[in-house]
Amino acid sequence: MVANNPIIYYINKTGVHTIVTKNCQEIPDISHLREIARQVRLDIIEMLFKAGSGHTGGSLSATDILVALFFAQMRLNPQDPCWPQRDRFVLSKGHAAPALYAVLSRLGYFPREELFTLRQFGSSLQGHPDSSCTPGVEVSTGSLGQGLSIANGMALASRLNGGGTRVYALLGDGEVQEGQIWEAAMTAAHYRLDNLVAVLDRNRLQIDGRTAEVMSLEPLAQKWEAFGWHTLEVDGHAFPELLAGLQETHGVKGRPSMIIAHTVKGKGVSIFENQVKYHGVTPSKEEYEQALKELHAA
C-alpha cells in the first residue's frame, strides 16, 4: 500500500518522516512538510465540497499542526495501527475530523478514495472521529471538552505500562471554555504528566463570533501556566516554530506541556481566512473552484 502512495515514498526518501524511529532526530525538510500540508488542504476542500457539510475553518487552521505532529513528531506505524509503542493522538476538537482523515490516509492508514465518502451513510469516516470505524483514530470525540481527560487517562496508562508512549491532544480555543478542560488541566499537572502534550489551536474564532466577544479567554497562556503546565506559544503555521516547540516538550520533566499555536481559521484559502461564517459551512461550487486554484498555485 505504501509503495503505491507517492507521497509516503517521497517523504521516506528524503527522511522527513520518522515512522517507527525514535523522536525526530533529523531536521525535517520544512519545504516537504509545507508540500504535504498543501496537499492535505486540497484533500480537505475536496472532501468537504463532496460531503456538502462539515467544518471548513477549524480543519484548515489545524492542518499544519496535524502535519507537524503526524509527519515529524509522533512515533507511528500505519501498517500496524495498534502497534503498542505508538504515540497516541486525541483530536479533542473533533469537528476538525476532515483534517485528521486527510492526514491519516496520506500516511497509509486507509485508501485516499475513502476520504470522499466522508459523512455518507455506511462510510468509515463519520462526521466526527469514531475510533470504532476508522483505522488510526484513537479516540471518539465530537462533544467538545472531553478529550483532555481522556488523554490524561492514556498518559496515566502509559506510565503504568512502563512509559515510553507520549500522548498528544489538539484542543480548540472555543473548546477550552468547557469546564471539564480545566478539571483535566488540574489533573494533568497533579499527576505530573510529562508524557502529555496539548496543542491549542488559537484561531480566535468560534461559532458565534470571536472568542474575545463570546467568552474571553485571555490571559490564556498565564492560565495554563498557573494551572501548572509548561506553556509556550508558537506560530501554528510556521513549521520551524511548531517543530521546535514540540521538540522542547521532550525536555520538560514533571509537568505537562501546552503549546498555544496561533493560527488563522480557514488558513490557506483567502476567502475562508478569519471568517466566522466558514466554521461549519462548506465551499459552494465557485468557492471550491477558487480554493483549488489558490491551493494549486500555492
Binding site: 497516541r88 481522556i150 487517562g153 492514556m154 496508562a157
Partner: peptide, 11 residues
C-alpha cells in the same frame, strides 16, 4: 473521561 483514557491504555 480519565477512566476512558485508562481503558484505552489497556487498564
Amino acid at each position: 473521561g480519565t477512566a476512558a483514557g485508562l481503558a484505552l491504555g489497556g487498564k
